[in-house]
């Protein structure tokens, strides 16, 4: 078993904000079951702020802990602030991730970004097309 930080274990054992939001303003899905992890993020937006963030995740302990901390980090932030949650920040906030689990932190940030993209698209607002990662296609 990989050696996870206490913070990872704590979020894995007690994940925050698990669930779906009915009539969510934005939904972001990343990953696929073949690679092992799948994350769905649901957001509610009020006044350009994330008033609610929920997630569902299929994956390992790290994937679940990442989802939980991303939801916590994003809650209450403006959309622009939420965009600044990078994989590196997520890993840092979790007090580190094993090397071979680092991709999980990518997925978390991607799923949140996709949910924001989805919201903007629904609103007919321009979606910021910052360089997408190649694994983000699906």
């Amino acid at each position: 078993m990989p050696v996870y930080s206490e913070k990872v274990m704590e979020h894995f054992m007690n994940p925050r904000n698990v669930g779906e939001i009915e009539n969510a303003d934005g939904i972001g899905e990343v990953g696929n079951p073949v690679c092992g992890d799948m994350m769905s993020f649901y957001i509610k937006v009020d006044d350009n702020r994330l008033s609610d963030v929920k997630f569902k995740t299929f994956g390992c302990g790290a994937a679940i802990a990442v989802s939980s901390i991303v939801s916590e980090m994003a809650m209450g932030k403006t959309l622009d602030e939420a965009r600044k949650i990078t994989p590196a920040l997520v890993a840092q906030e979790l007090e580190g991730l094993p090397k071979n689990k680092y991709h999980c932190s990518n997925l978390g940030a991607q799923a949140l970004n996709k949910a924001i993209d989805n919201y903007l698209k629904k609103q007919g607002k321009p979606v910021k097309t910052k360089g997408r990662r190649k694994d983000e296609k699906k």
Partner: peptide, 14 residues
């Protein structure tokens, strides 16, 4: 089905 082994192992271990 629908869930992942490592997560199960960690919860079982706890």
């Amino acid at each position: 089905e629908f869930i992942e082994g490592e997560a199960m192992l960690m919860l079982l271990s706890s």
